[in-house]
Design a protein around this nucleic acid. Structure first.
Length: 802
DNA sequence: AGCACGCCGACT
DNA sequence: GTCGGCGTGCTC
């Protein structure tokens, strides 16, 4: 058993296999699968994951592992296997799957350096480059007078050497601790011997006589009003000693969360939790779909099920959408489980995330609450996996590996023989259909815990408003209600359901919209720097004064939808105090929380925002929710647009009347008869489900079929179309009769970074060999991919069809 | 991917 | 002879 099978850090299809390496004697006992190693690879040295250890290899001359980077495996056996499954399922490289499962800091960085090997005089240019040093960063070669060829010769001569380094980004935070270096009585003696004028030293030493235990240097300085130099003086006299101790960065101060105790469950909650608890006790894998209206207390069900799991000595993973990973949510988990919780979300710095991950890895916590990637938490004894707001699109990763957290959760649930709970007020059709078929077990919470009905929803036909001569964005009814609310000292949430919330520039004379010259997308205006910027490629240009097309000076930027709403609202109801939440106002770190806190403190009457305000917020004084344009998403070329509209309307309606005060919802729309708006206003999920399922069946969309999206991109438009066409042809020949191949069609964003993008869609019911076929097709274009910079990406279950 | 190697043509 | 530019093939 002295051969390691290694997946190396080279994301290329020809390298997507294990490589065998000899394990040097010194590593033989400690090297385990799941550890990272550095290995020689060709002329380089690179990082890799050990995925197995064997006694034999079909290769006769093996190189040795250069170094082992971990003391304990970063990937458990289960995660190693999961990564393989993930790569096969989503058609990505193994290394990409593994990298996705560990914190960013484990990604290796590669450095090259030039090392001088001889004392003898080198060439003039080389001597100049070394300038007396023995080691140089390789990059210095670029702007030097030493040519690559010269260097090559020096290497051949044995004068210099190129060193390939693998650097780990890991940064452990260290804190300096101070403690006495001698016994208390010795310190007391030393106290007497201190010079009379060494007052600070005396104070410091005296402190340690009374408190001989170790203390953090910074706290000591603060506490005694002293400085590092004083401490240093005593260290030099070997009375004190300093040590570096590794600490976790703690983004959440555990003490600041008031302890909460389990609430009494309603009969409905009790009924829902019973089978989950049973599965926990019996260690059985089942998927539960917890369909609970907003405010029905799903979270309390989660918390109590988790408590059950903790009592059993097992671990829990809770996934929440990034957007609702607000302090409110964290507070509930930290309040119940205290320091037994690790929180993983995107606002953490790399170092912070690494620390939270290590707390999981070392089994210092039993609960993880986090966004999508938390599904890879390195627990080994999982007792429950919960996905809150199961319908959220953020659970699908949009770049490689293109996985859906729900699929991973169910896979891990099977591995660990534990229940998986999917919770939502508006489950995806996929999940609800599975529950109907009995694949998932359905539990329903139809009542709010406060016993109040869901707020009344009134749908306003904006076409009629227009006929009445009202050209503002606010119906008369909504305006009146807002005013009444403000009169009563109650608060309002207004949502502008708009997807493109960026600011674009348009000429009012000729209608020209400034677009990126490299991408098929409008440029975004950035007020601060007065520049136009492309979000896809980073292209920038100054904001023009005159229209470049017709020279008109009426070229203006169109503010975010919310900005314009804010302005017209200020005209209409001048006394309203408004907090606007959109990309502009929430860019700064923590801005999101700050604005919400202000609203909670009643510093404003109206919270105005985009989708981001629809979820998870809970303000007791909100009695009115207004949706300004309910149908703006409905006409997008996305088969899920009805479902998304229904979900959003239901979610946002749930923001009103969550506590004592009754709530009310006004929905403005130009298509009041559309079933997703009509049924959302009645909170009739079932009818919506039935109706939408019929639509999906008619138009052959999930859950009746599975989708695959293949996107081809290249700088040459003809080549892209040709390639896509070829792919379609091959597919048509090989797939079954009831499989539909659509395309080639231009992608919704037809050009990014000067590369044209075309796509083809596969709709199938049963196509067992499809993965293999697609792999073969990609292999077929391997030449073009390598040499011609052709790119083919495959999304095995696309969510966004872009 | 990224590196070595080898062939070729240009330039001192 | 010296130097730099590509195309090709390999990485345990």
């Amino acid at each position: 058993m002295n051969i390691a099978k290694v997946i190396v850090d080279v994301p290329a299809s020809v390298i997507n296999q294990t490589f065998d390496y000899l394990i040097p004697e010194k590593f033989r006992d400690m090297l385990k699968p799941g550890m990272r190693v550095t290995v020689p690879f060709g002329a380089r040295k690179i990082m890799g994951y050990v995925v197995g250890i064997t006694a034999e290899s079909q290769f006769n001359k093996l190189k040795e592992i250069h170094d082992v980077l971990d003391v304990t495996p970063v990937l458990t056996r289960e995660l190693l296997e999961l990564g393989k499954w993930l790569a096969d399922k989503t058609l990505c490289m193994y290394i990409i799957a593994y990298q996705a499962m560990v914190p960013q800091v484990f990604k290796a960085q590669y450095k090259k350096e030039i090392v001088r090997l001889t004392e003898a005089e080198l060439s003039f240019d080389l001597e100049k480059l070394f300038a007396g040093r023995d080691v140089l960063p390789y990059e210095l070669l670029d702007n030097s007078s030493v040519s690559f060829y010269q260097l090559q010769k020096a290497v051949q001569n044995g004068d210099v050497e190129i060193n390939y380094l693998v650097k780990s980004k890991i940064t452990q935070k260290k804190v300096t601790m101070i403690k006495p270096n001698q016994a208390p009585y010795q310190l007391e003696e030393a106290l007497l011997e201190l010079p009379k004028n060494a007052k600070k030293q005396w104070k410091l030493l005296h402190f340690f006589v009374e408190h001989p235990e170790e203390i953090e240097q910074n706290r000591l300085i603060k506490h005694l009003q002293t400085s590092r130099s004083t401490i240093k003086a005593l260290i030099d006299k070997s009375l004190l000693i300093s040590t570096k101790v590794e600490v976790y960065r703690n983004p959440y101060d555990d003490k600041s969360y008031p302890q909460t105790t389990p609430l009494e469950l309603t009969p409905q909650q009790q009924k829902a939790i019973t089978p989950i608890n049973e599965a926990i006790i019996k260690s059985e894998h089942h998927v539960f779909l917890l369909h609970g209206v907003t405010g029905s207390g799903k979270t309390e069900v989660y918390l109590q099920a988790i408590q059950h799991v903790i009592n059993k000595g097992k671990e829990a993973i809770v996934l929440v959408p990034e957007i609702s990973l607000t302090p409110q949510m964290v507070k509930r988990f930290k309040g119940r489980f205290g320091s037994n919780v690790a929180v993983l979300h995107s606002a953490l710095s790399n170092g912070e995330r690494y620390d939270e991950w290590r707390r999981i890895h070392r089994k210092e916590v039993q609960v993880v609450v986090g966004a999508r990637s938390a599904i890879f938490a390195p627990f080994e004894n999982i007792g429950i996996i919960i996905i809150d707001e199961e319908h959220e699109t953020t659970y699908k990763q949009e770049d490689q590996p293109r996985y859906h957290a729900r699929d991973v959760a169910i896979y891990r649930g099977k591995n660990h023989h534990c229940p998986v709970v999917l919770g939502s007020a508006t489950p995806t059709l996929e999940s609800y259909a599975r529950a109907q078929k009995g694949v998932y077990q359905l539990a329903t919470l139809s009542k709010r815990t406060n016993e109040k009905d869901m707020p009344e929803v009134e749908v306003i036909d904006m076409r009629k408003e227009l006929h009445k001569g009202n050209r503002t964005m606010f119906s008369i009814k909504l305006k009146e209600k807002i005013e009444a609310c403000i009169q009563n000292d109650e608060q309002i949430v207004l949502m502008l359901n708009r997807r493109g919330y960026s600011t674009f520039v348009m000429c009012r004379d000729c209608g020209l919209v400034k677009e990126c010259p490299h991408c098929d997308i409008a440029l975004t205006f950035h007020k601060k720097i007065n520049q136009l910027k492309c979000h896809y490629c980073g292209y920038e240009e100054p904001m023009p004064v005159n229209c470049p097309e017709c020279n008109s000076d009426l070229i203006r930027y169109f503010g975010t939808g919310t900005q314009r709403v804010e302005e017209s609202l200020a005209q209409l109801i001048p006394e309203a105090r408004i907090i606007r939440m959109d990309v502009d106002t929430t860019q700064r770190k923590g801005a999101h929380e700050k604005l919400l806190q202000q609203f909670a403190n009643k510093e404003a009457d109206i919270l105005l925002g985009t989708q981001m305000i629809a979820k998870g917020l809970d303000f007791e004084n909100v009695t009115l929710v207004g949706v300004l344009t309910a149908d703006s998403m409905l006409h997008l070329p996305d088969f899920r647009s009805s479902e998304k509209t229904f979900q959003l309307l239901t979610q946002v309606s749930g923001r009103a009347g969550r506590h004592e005060l009754p709530g009310e919802v006004i929905v403005q729309t130009y298509t009041p008869d559309h079933y997703s708006i009509e049924l959302a206003s009645k909170y009739d999920y079932n009818a919506f489900y039935q109706k939408e399922m019929r639509m999906r069946r008619t138009f052959r969309y999930p859950p009746y079929v599975f989708l695959v999206l293949i996107t081809v991109s290249h700088s040459n438009k003809v080549k892209v179309i040709q390639t896509t066409q070829q792919i379609v042809q091959i597919l048509l020949k090989k797939v079954q009769q009831d499989t539909v191949i659509l395309g080639p069609t231009p992608s919704p964003i037809a050009k990014i970074k000067d590369r044209y993008r075309y796509q083809c869609m596969i709709k199938y019911r049963d196509e067992p060999k499809l993965r293999k076929l697609i792999k073969k097709i990609i292999d077929l274009f391997a030449e073009d991919i390598r040499k011609e910079d052709l790119l083919i990406t495959v999304d095995m279950q696309p969510y966004q069809l872009m």
